[in-house]
Write a protein that binds this DNA or RNA. Structure first.
Lengths: 206, 206, 206, 206
DNA sequence: TCATAAACGAGACGGTACGTCTCGTCTTGTG
DNA sequence: CACAAGACGAGACGTACCGTCTCGTTTATGA
């Protein structure tokens, strides 16, 4: 399954105590601080206080702020969007786009994305997080696109990655670069535009 | 005329002496630091040193790091993309997309965008910078789209802002969210996809 | 004269601020903490708080705890014992011994000595402080001994340094190695014993 | 019988394990660290590592750093100076002084003394160690002095403790307060001076 | 010989202090 | 008056130890 040990990254061997619980409290606190204040104004000490543990513990386990935030974001990114493959490519794309929009519409989602974009350059950890996140997304739509191709609804050489990119791009762009709110209309338009481009044979491999 | 107007955006009051020169040295230094190190690792003291002036001077004129960076970026964004209206909507869009791609392909352009995206939330100054930047872009393509509409190459209700957004989105997205390089193919595909969506009547007002 | 610039060690050039006052507040606070708690339990943060200034200021000026304490002790050691040369060698030695005893009998004097002895090994700064302190002491009794020699009260080859050492040794020893209190009797006995040894020709050069 | 008696030094209570060996390894490590680094820079963790055991074990047995060091020093002080009573008070005192000098001349002896002096105030444990150490020394010279008194070589009221003090004081003083090396001449002079003072009736009870 | 209790290993944790790095303010002096 | 020089307050960062606790493992002994 996709089940991951709760204990993923740092529950090394045998905890002398409350390892896993501490970990989850801290990661939750990181996200909360990120949302409230953004990466720049998030402090390790603030996280520790919010989590009700001591800052030394954080430094012991995560070493520095960057790795701490990276793991928190990785964790958050793990909460994956449920996407179904109904066979109706238009509806499925719309569903996907709306899911993305919904995520980014929350204060939490928006803050997470901003934190990642802001810190990814220069942080191998975060780059890896993002990489993994998008790989997961691609894995999700791959089958949907392939089914659509099988049903001749999309050109045979259509690249699922590109479709994903063209669906997501306008949504992320609107979040990051404009002050317009994200609505369902935003999502639907993005989905429709991506499919139109795909049908026109623009979103192919290579 | 002989009027020089070195003093573009914020020629505060009246350059009593070396004001303007100091200003441009500082702003250049800010950009350089931003490019070298990113926003987080750019320090006012580093900027001062690089500019060969004293940090007090910076604080006197810009007050804080955020306003300093905001003005530097505003200044940088002023270097505007030359876009021509040849009447061939496909070619013109491709030219526009390539110009955007070219800008973001430079180390400087990429760093600038990242700095803006990272700091815009929470910084009214930067939000305004970004706002103005996109207004300028929209002003550029407005006439092109209108001409295309006049020639019936695009639906009458096509929204130039949306077209701009759909051209730019995949390019910015690729810069910020993936590690694929920006190429001319990226630009051409973005331009084609945006036009396809526009022709399909998806990029209309409202 | 023996007058030293108030500003001795760190009044570098000509400060843009309140340098000298800060310095004296800090050094006084160091001594106070040393007396209250001993070297081991004296913290830079505590000193800063007591001095009413910020710890960063201390680190900026003294670099680390060791140098801070060294300078404070150097400063304290400067408060010199007044010793007079009456011509009566017995009385003068007794006066000297009593002065030493009086100094070491105060909480402050005892704490200072303990701090120096504890930290001197491994701290060139403190070694230098101690060196200077004893040089000053030797300079004080030098003339007294010479006068006594001139009056044939002491052997011609008597070494003032040795006399000083034999006067001070039992007093310091009693402070550091036993729990007996320092009294005038302690001082008088030390003075008498040193003179007896000197008269016996034991405290000579080489 | 089958009794093994692994338990050399202090067969604490009931060894469920390898008690005695651990103890001696730890105490040796403490001394070594003390010698290498002084009290301030000696860490329990460092001691544990050097002893090849775990720091928890140390805390279990000694509770804290102070008690650990106290016991190590107590142990070290136990190695007692052999002093003989030949009947020749001058020679015996010289032997005693040379023994003291020899001990303090070693890196180990010097470090031990410094550690004790530095930490004794505020540490009842160490005060007790020192107290015991000097009691042992007094016990050693008591008979020698008494024999000398019996032979009328010293005044009847001579206090052995005072004689010990006046022999040791210049030696300790030189170690702690100056940078002159300890030599046999140092020892001989100290012995001679103490005896001179004693013969002059200065080192009496009360 | 085998169960048991003490000693031990491993390591997470709370906590104090250290020393470093920026940011932004303020003071003083100089051209 | 603009600027250089720099002291200072504020506060976060990351490190080193201290001493406590829990859990699991080893080992000597006594039944």
């Amino acid at each position: 399954m996709l089940q991951r040990k709760v204990d993923g990254v740092s529950g090394t061997t045998r905890p002398g105590g409350r390892t896993a619980e501490t970990r989850s409290k801290v990661l939750a606190a990181v996200l909360a601080e990120l949302i409230d204040s953004g990466y720049g104004r998030t402090s390790v000490e603030g996280v520790a206080e919010r989590a009700g543990i001591h800052k030394t513990t954080i430094y012991r386990r995560w070493g520095n702020k960057e790795r701490l935030v990276a793991e928190a974001l990785e964790n958050a990114a793990d909460v994956r969007t449920e996407v179904v493959d109904t066979g109706d490519i238009d509806a499925d794309m719309r569903t996907l786009a709306r899911a993305v929009t919904a995520t980014l519409s929350t204060h939490e989602g928006a803050a997470t994305v901003r934190a990642i974009v802001a810190e990814a350059p220069g942080s191998p950890q975060l780059a890896a997080v993002m990489s993994g996140f998008w790989a997961a997304r691609r894995a999700q739509i791959g089958p949907i696109i392939e089914h659509a191709i099988a049903r001749k609804q999309l050109p045979a050489t259509t690249d699922p990655s590109e479709v994903m990119k063209y669906v997501a791009a306008p949504i992320y762009y609107q979040l990051l670069m404009s002050d317009e709110p994200l609505t369902e209309a935003t999502a639907d338009r993005a989905a429709a535009a991506a499919l139109t481009a795909a049908r026109a044979g623009l979103l192919t491999h290579g």
